[in-house]
């Protein structure tokens, strides 16, 4: 299914995906993550059918596709969250800095430290204050936190939330608006200084203004952190992502620089999806 136009489409066999278009775009960023023939299932249902895809360092990569195409499952495999679900299994490899995170002896707990995640629905811990939420990743794991307030401020500033909450830090995280809650969750992830940030439809529960703020934030963060964002909103992918991958029915249909994927899709199915003929 990936034969149509060699030059643009990932070749699963070799795991090589550098495309002509990318070569043209001059300096290539390093690969931070590469999934190799990644397969994931719930029970007997295979939702990812062999995905090979690079995630470039300090770039924003968008995963698009119709609902049920496996895009959420894909990012959940990148920090080993998929396997926490009921009857979920994974096969294949995910290379983080060239090392397989599914190899024997790797503790998923440590991987999740390096690869942070923001969920579809904002999920601040309701039993904790705003400040405690920011520090949750450290406090829950029993780490000593030497400069609490500095860290809280730094993470909240990174998440562009500091000015709004600096006076109400002891309040419950649940008291914030939806968009603020989501930025609090981003701050919570950033406080751990992750190398990669996975965002699973982070704006789907938010209103347009809150969405715009998060997108702005993604732009700023993209210079420091490798970001993978799942979205069903193509305009959003166009606005925030350097690279876009189109998934359909558990398979990777197309991957390339966002401009190219949206203006000159190599695959008919990509074009159909982008132009709204299905999905």
């Amino acid at each position: 299914m990936m034969k149509a136009t060699e030059s643009f489409v990932p070749t699963a066999e070799k795991g090589r995906v550098v495309t002509i278009a990318e070569r043209e775009s001059a300096i290539l960023p390093a690969e931070k993550i590469r999934s190799v023939d990644l397969r994931a299932s719930f029970g007997a249902t295979e939702v990812l059918k062999g995905i090979t895809l690079p995630i470039l360092e300090r770039q924003v990569t968008a995963i698009i596709g119709p609902s049920g195409c496996g895009k959420s499952t894909f990012v959940r495999c990148l920090n080993r969250m998929h396997e926490t679900a009921h009857r979920a299994t994974v096969a294949g490899r995910v290379l983080l800095d060239g090392r397989d995170i599914y190899r024997a002896g790797i503790d998923p707990v440590a991987i999740r430290r390096r690869v942070g995640m923001v969920f579809q629905k904002p999920n601040p811990f309701p039993t904790m204050s705003i400040a405690e939420n920011v520090l949750a990743g450290l406090s829950l794991t029993g780490e000593r936190i030497p400069h609490r307030m500095e860290l809280v401020e730094k993470a909240l500033r990174q998440a562009a939330l500091w000015d709004e909450v600096k006076d109400i830090l002891p309040r419950s995280g649940a008291s914030l608006s939806g968009g603020q809650q989501q930025r609090l969750c981003i701050a919570r992830a950033l406080a751990l200084d992750p190398e990669v940030l996975l965002m699973d439809e982070p704006c789907s529960a938010l209103d347009p203004i809150a969405t715009a703020r998060i997108e702005e934030l993604i732009h700023e963060l993209g210079d420091h952190v490798t970001i993978v964002i799942v979205t069903h909103n193509m305009q959003q992918a166009g606005r925030v992502a350097d690279h876009t991958a189109f998934l359909y029915m558990g398979e990777l249909v197309e991957y390339g620089p966002t401009d190219r994927v949206f203006t000159r899709p190599a695959e008919q199915r990509t074009e159909d999806y982008i132009t709204g003929r299905f999905g």
Partner: peptide, 24 residues
């Protein structure tokens, strides 16, 4: 989502249970 939020921060199961599930 409470459990996922904690696990995604790199907690062990017990840290997740003690820190988020039990307080809730």
């Amino acid at each position: 989502w409470l459990r996922e939020g904690a696990l995604a921060l790199g907690t062990t199961r017990w840290e997740m249970i003690r820190g988020t599930v039990l307080p809730f």
